[in-house]
């Protein structure tokens, strides 16, 4: 077994008296895909927000490739290789699809006002390279035709794919997908699973962490699943183990079927 690329130990976050995440520990390995499931309010998105440093944890540690990022800020973790999408898409409304993807590449290239004003030849080559990488990502997610369109003119499912392309373009080590199938119809969910498989072929070292409500997606894609309920970890294991776990059936699957 290789070393985990991302690891959390005893991650805890409280909002007032509510414990949103209670000692959450997980690990994910390069090239693998793991899921976090649980009913609404189980603290799944809070875990993502802690890892991407929107929130600061009250307790616990986060390691990326054995580098302690427990106190890093949002810009640092993004540069270190953690990219994500959002439950409610957060695309830049005033920018076209291509620019939305290019935005995420800014961090991987050096900033300099002077090189922006002078150093023309070098800068142009750099801009070309950025454009090519962004276009490649759009192509991978079958978005090339929308490159010049504003995201607000596109269907929800397409906007979600644009977010995935934007997260992928900086070539991250960890991709976190926050309910990628929310609001999609069954056919779109199947397409999404195919896209995720394509991504895994193209980026064999990429670790993917998924939060999802749609059981068919989680059970089909994920190799390992963490189940959260009211902030607590109630089970973890392979999809087969999770489907048989009585706690999970009680807390989650049972509830949904009633």
């Amino acid at each position: 077994m290789p070393d985990p690329v991302l690891r959390t130990i005893g991650l805890t976050k409280r909002f007032g008296g509510l414990v949103a995440v209670d000692h959450f520990s997980m690990e994910i390995f390069p090239g693998s895909i793991r899921g976090i499931i649980g009913p609404n309010g189980a603290g799944k998105t809070t875990v993502f927000n802690l890892i991407s440093r929107i929130y600061t944890q009250d307790e616990g540690e986060i390691y990326l490739d054995d580098v302690d990022i427990s106190n890093a800020d949002q810009i640092q973790v993004s540069k270190l290789g953690i990219a994500r999408t959002f439950q409610n898409t957060r695309l830049f409304t005033g920018l076209n699809v291509l620019d939305n993807v290019k935005v995420a590449l800014d961090s991987s290239a050096e900033y300099s006002m002077f090189s922006a004003m002078f150093g023309f030849g070098k800068r142009q080559r750099e801009e070309k390279l950025i454009e090519k990488r962004a276009l490649d990502c759009l192509e991978l997610l079958n978005l090339s035709v929308y490159a010049r369109q504003r995201p607000s003119n596109l269907a929800y499912g397409i906007q979600r794919r644009v977010e995935i392309a934007r997260a992928l373009v900086s070539n991250p080590k960890v991709l976190m997908l926050d309910e990628p199938a929310a609001g999609l119809n069954p056919e779109e969910v199947n397409q999404l699973m195919q896209y995720i498989q394509d991504i895994r072929v193209k980026y064999p070292e990429l670790a993917i962490l998924v939060i999802e409500h749609r059981m068919e997606l989680v059970m089909n894609l994920c190799e390992y699943i963490y189940v959260q309920d009211f902030g607590e970890s109630i089970a973890q294991g392979s999809p087969e183990e999770i489907q048989k776990s009585p706690e999970v059936l009680m807390a989650y699957l049972g509830e949904e079927e009633n």
Partner: peptide, 10 residues
């Protein structure tokens, strides 16, 4: 357009 999301994009 969106300073918060920009920060998450690095």
């Amino acid at each position: 357009i969106d300073p918060n999301t920009s920060r998450l994009m690095g």
